[in-house]
């Protein structure tokens, strides 16, 4: 049996303005090396769930385990093993240039300058963003910013990759490159990937397992094949 990387059981979160988001229904389990697509309309609780997985939010009710630990209580231990790309990448880009931004996490994790350089150059080449490396993140387009954020997440060689609408602003060619890269990393390094999206195409192109989240409830869990065969009702994401 494969190791459980993420396990979420009937999660409930109350925001300070009393907005309640609960992710209940079927339990959310991600195994090592699995590619999970979490699909759902706006406000269905996808981002809340991902923020709990990363350890940014503390659950009011329910249980969440990442690498067998509570990510909120063991934030430092857990986050070191996770690469994250947020919905709003503007806030995520920190470095003065693209190169510096990608090097930010490895530098902070205490890797040697030689190792940082090696990793940054490698990921820049693999994601085909050499032309961006000396640019100022501020002046990049939305899609380019996403690519840089993805590079920044992959450079730490994470075991779990959490992507919140990470491919949404990319052009078809860039999307293809990123999906190929994710698949390659998943195959070669057994990286586990959780992708939240509202694009149904991603289920076909990427998922091993699909979760459909609607109004805070996991309505469906299964393979993409079954998902399309059963014609799961999900009108909002059908463009």
């Amino acid at each position: 049996m494969k190791e459980e990387i993420v396990k979420v059981d009937c999660l409930k979160h109350v925001y300070p303005d009393k907005t309640e988001v609960s992710v209940c229904g079927l339990s959310f389990v991600v195994h090592r090396g699995e590619k999970v697509v979490l699909i759902g309309p706006n406000g269905s609780g996808k981002t809340t769930l991902l923020h709990h997985i990363i350890g940014l939010l503390k659950a009011t009710e329910g249980e969440i385990k990442v690498f067998g630990l509570n990510p909120c209580k063991n934030f430092k231990k857990v986050v070191r093993r996770i690469g994250v790309v947020f919905q709003n990448v503007d806030e995520q880009l920190i470095g003065p240039t693209v190169w510096d931004d990608i090097a930010f996490s490895p530098m902070n994790y205490g890797l040697s300058k030689k190792e940082v350089k090696k990793r940054v150059e490698k990921i820049i080449k693999e994601l085909k963003i050499e032309y961006l490396k000396n640019k100022i993140p501020r002046y990049l387009s939305g899609g380019e910013k996403k690519k840089v954020a993805i590079a920044g997440a992959l450079v730490i060689e994470p075991e779990l990759l959490v992507l919140d609408e990470a491919l949404s602003e990319l052009d078809p060619e860039s999307k293809r490159i990123m999906i190929r890269k994710f698949n390659e990393l998943n195959k070669k390094n057994k990286i586990t990937i959780v992708l939240a999206t509202n694009e149904i195409d991603m289920v076909k192109k990427f998922a091993d397992t699909v979760y459909v989240l609607e109004a805070g409830e996991i309505k469906y869990r299964g393979s993409p094949k079954e998902f399309f065969k059963k014609k799961i009702k999900y009108e909002i994401c059908r463009h």
Partner: peptide, 11 residues
């Protein structure tokens, strides 16, 4: 999340 621990590094 990006590993900042209170020290500013410059590559």
């Amino acid at each position: 999340i990006r590993g900042f621990k209170g020290k500013v590094y410059c590559f």
